[in-house]
Design a binder for these strands. Structure first.
Length: 450
RNA sequence: UCCUGCGUAGCUCAGCGGUAGAGCGGGUGGCUGUUAACCACUAGGUCGUUGGUUCGAAUCCAACCGCAGGAGCCA
């Protein structure tokens, strides 16, 4: 039985077996108390082990970090702090942990725990983070599946080196002496994907509503709390959908995910609210209940200009919003998530649909307090002639991307989609400020341990 | 990649030119239905690395390495 199940019981249980890892042991003359955790939930279960029961001679080996198996009874606890506890009838120390075990009863810094990423899931904080991560992934599938979206697995190895964005990781079997790319495994240069969007568009133009959810790789040398070289991304793509519908879906999804987490990860969120981010629960409730703000890029620039704020980078129509601008909009001006739409076309990639004004693209970014951009999306250019012109202007090879323009050549439809950074969403939901602390084994420039 | 800060015991940190310290954790003993238990005793350190200044460097300077935060890029 898991500890979660045992603790959920309202009645004594005559015969119970639990297995887990010792968090603390408190010895008395004649008996010992153990706090045991198995990761099924945040809470530990307390066990009392009397001297003389089978296995009790090994109680001194049940140190912090060791693994044990207990058989006994679940009984009402005479002590304060827990309603039920286990009265052990038999104990077995499955695996010992000597005094080099790095986790202590006391709290550790997140920096230290990052260095022992193989043991940090045994800490309260990281147990909560990774249980929440699992539930959030499940909720994402549930959200799309309930709406009839089809889950598409786009390739991880790709020859599309474009989107204008991001440095890519080369995938190659060439050794140092071979230089001819024709000798490489795929006969041409290949990379790890930076986005499944272009490929998933082909499925949207067949199955209508689709989504991807998979790993994504960026070889950018970015060193921030919200960038990783390997992360997970969700990319829905909808046929017969314009930018308006795209923004509707993005906002509905964010609210759905927050509500789901509030409902199913209450115990974990309570810990985040207590130790990570005091305002977390209040913010999550307000975000899940209130309508999001929605403004055009042009309006955003006006607001920033009129704000009277001294920005390090003065805002001007035509340049991208800087982090400081985004933070001002979402954290100070609106104090809520903000969707900014219709950006200048010059700062957006070739596949985004050009608006009728000829100056802006049907693009949108969803900004949230504390993190900034959590979603980036657009309506795609569905007109063949306009797309070809965009490709020319952006120096995109028409030959390499003929399969992409074919979608406009054969039965083209208006379609839209966006990308949600999974870890950024998890950061928003948990209040954890560093992306390295919401990924089991984070990969960042200069660091790929474990 | 740029800017800033920080590397002292297993962990968190104090010391900031003159004999390396505390709390927690570990070990030993005691004690109690205990709750980050309590009490006593105890072990534990090339002060990130290399070089320089100085009679003398954990302390001042430089370079390098590592980590963190901010910026750019983005999700």
């Amino acid at each position: 039985m898991t500890i979660k199940e045992a603790l959920a019981s309202n009645n004594p249980i005559d015969d119970i077996t639990i297995s887990g890892w010792v968090r603390t042991r408190r010895d008395s003359k004649g008996f010992s108390f153990l706090s045991i955790n198995d990761g099924s939930c945040l809470a530990n279960i307390q066990a009392i082990v009397d001297d003389g029961i089978p296995g009790s001679e090994s109680i001194s080996m049940a140190t912090t970090g060791s693994s044990i198996k207990l058989t006994g009874q679940l009984v009402e606890s005479p002590g304060k702090g827990q309603s039920f506890e286990i009265k052990a009838l038999e104990i077995e120390v499955t695996g010992t942990a000597d005094d080099t075990y790095p986790l202590q009863k006391k709290g550790h810094s997140q920096e230290f725990l990052r260095e022992i990423a193989h043991l940090r899931p045994r800490s309260n904080l990281f147990g909560c983070v990774f249980r929440t991560r699992s539930r959030l992934a499940y909720a994402i599938h549930q959200f799309f599946q309930e709406k009839g979206f089809v889950y598409v697995h786009t390739p991880i190895i790709t020859a599309s080196d474009c989107e204008g964005a991001g440095e890519m990781f080369r995938v190659t079997t060439l050794d140092g002496n071979q230089t001819d790319k024709k000798d490489d495994f795929f006969g041409k240069p290949t990379y790890l994907t930076v986005s499944g969007q272009l490929e998933v568009e082909t499925f949207a133009c067949a199955l209508s509503n689709v989504y991807t959810f998979g790993p994504t790789f960026r070889a950018e040398n970015s060193n921030t709390t919200r960038h990783a070289s390997e992360f997970w991304m969700i990319e829905p793509e909808m046929a017969h959908c314009d930018l308006e519908g795209d923004m509707d879906l993005a906002e509905e999804m964010i609210q759905y995910l927050i509500k789901d987490t509030l409902q199913h990860c209450a115990e974990d969120l309570e810990l985040f609210g207590k130790f990570v981010d005091k305002g977390l629960l209040e913010r999550l409730h307000s975000v899940s209940d209130q309508a999001f703000q929605r403004i055009s890029y042009t309006e955003a620039v006006k607001i920033l200009k009129k704000s009277g704020m001294e920005f390090e980078y003065p805002i001007e129509w035509g340049i991208n919003l800087q982090t400081e601008h985004e933070r001002f909009l979402t954290e100070e001006y609106f104090k809520s998530p903000v969707t900014v739409h219709d950006y200048p076309k010059s700062i957006k990639p070739f596949y985004m649909r050009i608006n009728d004004d000829g100056k802006t693209s049907a693009a949108m970014d969803l900004l949230v307090p504390g993190i900034g951009e959590i979603i980036g999306g657009s309506q795609r250019e569905e007109r063949l002639d306009v797309l070809m012109k965009n490709m020319e202007e952006n120096n995109i090879s028409k030959k390499d991307y003929s399969w992409y323009s074919d979608l406009r050549r054969y039965g083209t439809v208006p379609h839209s989609g966006f990308g949600l950074g999974f870890e950024r969403m998890l950061m928003f939901v948990t209040g954890v400020a560093n992306i390295r602390d919401v990924i089991p084994f984070p990969r960042t420039p200069g660091s790929a341990d474990f």
